[in-house]
Design a binder for these strands. Structure first.
Length: 221
DNA sequence: CGGGTTTGACCAGCGC
DNA sequence: GCGCTGGTCAAACCCG
């Protein structure tokens, strides 16, 4: 395993005006924790708005490849080193997770092609990474490992360790290209990421600073 | 000592 | 009905 020690941090970025989903977030995994779980990375996270997700989900909005990553503004230091930059791509085929198994829940405008889907939100995507455990800021607890028929690589099962949160995720290496990690999230977190990093952005026009994040620190109930 | 990981066993769904 | 496969459980173990 690539035990590159770095702390998993999730950077939240102010959503561009007009971006209703407000889920443009940046994820960086500086490396993997030697012990798996505790932080898997990635953000894409179950978007808060499943409907939008199903219809307009564009992985490119919350992923970055080398080029994009380099161009990320407002997230200085996301890539401290060029070693572990995840490149997320839609999963090519469905079986274990079709191209972004778009969400389930309420949305699914394209559901006409899919007879029936589980009620839980499910998203799958590929991440180009040397490590399997990407940090999405949430704390995951591994509860199983299984070798699957279609892949020479074992599939790992994780569950959000936050009490009351039933989000699960499966992580496995792409059978066709081991340099990619296929991650499938199932469910939606009912809590804020414990490691969400808030930071201020300055409004160019007014010069005012405002805090960005999943929830403004001051407005938590 | 508490929390997380490992790993074999068990169970349910599905195809033949 | 049977066998296969994926998903989950749970006890043992490990680590901070």
């Amino acid at each position: 395993m690539a035990a590159v020690g770095a702390h998993p941090v999730l950077y939240h970025h102010p959503a561009p005006a007009g971006d209703a989903s407000s889920m443009s977030s940046y994820f960086s995994h500086g490396g993997s924790s030697t012990t798996s779980s505790s932080a898997s990375s990635f953000t894409a996270a179950l978007a808060p708005t499943t409907t939008a997700l199903a219809e307009h989900f564009d992985i490119s909005e919350f992923l970055f490849d080398d080029a994009a990553g380099a161009g990320v503004a407002g997230a200085p230091g996301v890539f401290a080193d060029g070693a572990a930059r995840p490149v997320v791509l839609p999963v090519p085929d469905a079986a274990g997770g079709g191209a972004i198994i778009g969400a389930a829940a309420g949305g699914a405008a394209a559901a006409s092609e899919v007879p029936e889907r589980p009620r839980t939100t499910r998203i799958a995507f590929r991440t180009r990474s040397e490590i399997e455990i990407l940090d999405d800021g949430y704390k995951w607890r591994k509860y199983g490992k299984k070798s699957v028929k279609n892949s020479p690589n074992p599939r790992n099962y994780y569950r959000c360790s936050t009490e009351g949160c039933n989000v699960k995720k499966r992580v496995e290496r792409d059978k066709d290209d081991p340099s990619y990690v296929v991650t499938t999230y199932e469910g939606m977190h009912n809590h804020v990421s414990p490691s969400t990093v808030y930071y201020a952005s300055q409004d160019a026009a007014s010069g005012r600073f405002f805090v960005a994040g999943t929830q403004p620190p001051g407005s938590l109930n």
